[in-house]
Design a protein around this nucleic acid. Structure first.
Lengths: 169, 169
DNA sequence: ACTTTTTAATAAGCTAGCTAATTAAATTTA
DNA sequence: TAAATTTAATTAGCTAGCTTATTAAAAAGT
């Protein structure tokens, strides 16, 4: 999980800007605000999921399985839907299986694959926690009006559109 | 690092909203937009820091040391400024020391403490990478006008203000 | 002056992410 | 039909975060 904060004060940014003309103060401040908010939100979410002895990764898999049909999902499908590698999914499923929240079943037509299903216990846990979960998610965003939520989504998509600039060689 | 994505489609959110009246669609969509943007930005930043054989945590420590005075920083001060535990700082300093970017020196007046300093090599690495780093940070935010950057900072601080709602028992 | 408590850094053990390699199974190629 | 290639899941090894415990050193209390 990410709890890293960065707290440079205004003076530190100004000092750096003197030495590095490439530093755009407004951009750096926006970036730092984003990273600091991320650290806080993730830390709070970790506490939240820990109440139910879950992590965000485990919870995400459970949610994907809740919405899957009777065939379940393969580990590869879980990896794709959750945006992590298959190796990571293996570890997460190990934990979920140990807690008896999911089962790994053979895939009928391909012995390389598995079919992952929610157990009754897993379904019950989600039923129990989702009201609380959605309440908290709603309250996380309660300080924003509906217009502000839309604005935030638009601005975040502009930030996201800038990520290739970091990846470029 | 966090690369977890969550990609529920519109229909999935609507289905859940039918079963869980606590689910506020606008809040969940805003939250998911935030988490997805976070995943992308962190993934891109990981690639960026990896070019210099660093991680965000290591880079943050180096930046704190760059701005420190001649006394350096203690590991405790690093932990506080970076927002992680002292145990985590120990591991990060191990890596930075192995790369000869920092040195651990005895603290003059208290043998429990250490004084951490940038090496010449560490300073040279920062001088070399910071122009590129600030260019990329500027480009990450280039799709936003200055007004939008200020708006984003304000909206993020409202999100951050909502984190106690997740922490509350 | 000695004992107790607190503090700093680290070690141990864990989770969750990654990459690369491995094994078994399916598909493709010749 | 057999060999070669590709795929799915896992394993191994790593990093970076955490908590808890440990050890050495300083501070506080008696």
């Amino acid at each position: 999980m990410v709890t890293l904060h960065s707290f440079p004060d205004q003076q530190a940014i100004l000092n750096l800007a003197k030495r590095y003309p490439q530093l755009d103060i407004a951009s750096v401040e926006t970036c730092l605000a984003f990273l600091n908010t991320t650290a806080d939100v993730y830390q709070a979410l970790d506490v939240h999921f820990a109440r139910y002895e879950l992590s965000m990764g485990k919870f995400t898999i459970l949610m994907q399985l809740l919405q899957a049909d009777e065939q379940g999902l393969t580990p590869s499908e879980c990896a794709e839907k959750c945006g992590v590698t298959r190796a990571t999914i293996t570890g997460l499923l190990d934990g979920l299986e140990r807690k008896e929240l999911v089962t790994r079943k053979p895939y009928p037509s391909d012995r390389r694959m598995l079919s992952i299903h929610l157990t009754d216990k897993g379904q019950q846990l989600l039923c129990q926690m989702l009201p609380d979960h959605f309440c908290r998610t709603t309250n996380l965003m309660a300080n924003l009006t509906d217009t502000e939520k839309k604005t935030l989504i638009e601005l975040l998509s502009k930030v996201k559109a800038g990520t290739p600039a970091i990846l470029k060689p």
